[in-house]
Amino acid sequence: MTLRSMPMSARIGLAGILLVFACAIFAPVIAPYDESAIVGEVWAPMGGDFLLGTDNLGRDLLSRLIYGARATLFVALSATVISFSIGMFLSFTAVVSGGVVDQLLSRLNDLLMSVPALILALVVLAVLPQNIWILIVVMAVIDSTRVYRVGRAVALDVSVMDFVEAAWLRGEGKLWIIFREILPNTLAPLLGEFGLRFAFSILFLSTLSFLGLGIQPPIADWGGMVKDNKDGIIFGVSASLTPGAAIAFLVVCVNLVVDWLINTTSSLKGARDNA
């Protein structure tokens, strides 16, 4: 799994992701205008002073797109990291402890998963105050159920292998079993899963923002920008399509890398079986 063996599609994906990250990090340097400055007329067309035109309030769309990468990436990535930490911790605990702990955690997970993610988010966000950290935690908790399910399956696969049994019989402790025996053998498949969850988080966040429940104005984020400009569509104003395309671009890039990750890890596994 080296850069050298990366196919073209995955390289494009990686380059795209790096580009978005660069935009997010260097936004104040790159962006021609300020994030919330009203600099022109409403919905000015593309070209001239405004490369991508202006939005519904007359703010520069390109600048908002660049700044929007910050909020979108920050929230989606934080939610994914937290969701992964929760899901992995609980699933590994369930597998290594077994018995009642496993039953309890797994049934609770089934329950949370029996309500669709978006619906659960809508219900919860309806009562909670609007705040970026609450948003992140809600997204993370809902998504951690999916991580739990995958993490448990993967860890269970490894935990029944003879080398784990051998480690128990040698007299190793629980921590050694988790961190030295099970975890290293689950990293490859879980890396692919992390990418999938990240892609899902970007889409989920954008959807929530689009519905007005995600990141709140005046902070720019791509889903919210689509919502702000959606009334323009009927007049042929493309201001709502540009941020939508940005979301699509980022998710396609992530998926390209994920596809490669999943392919390499599955073929690695195959090589091991044949050896």
Binding site: M161, D162, F163, A166, R180, E181, P184, N185, R272, D273, A275
Partner: peptide, 9 residues
């Protein structure tokens, strides 16, 4: 199965 009896990593 010596394959599965040793940690591949």
């Amino acid at each position: 199965m010596a394959d599965t009896a040793m940690n591949p990593r």
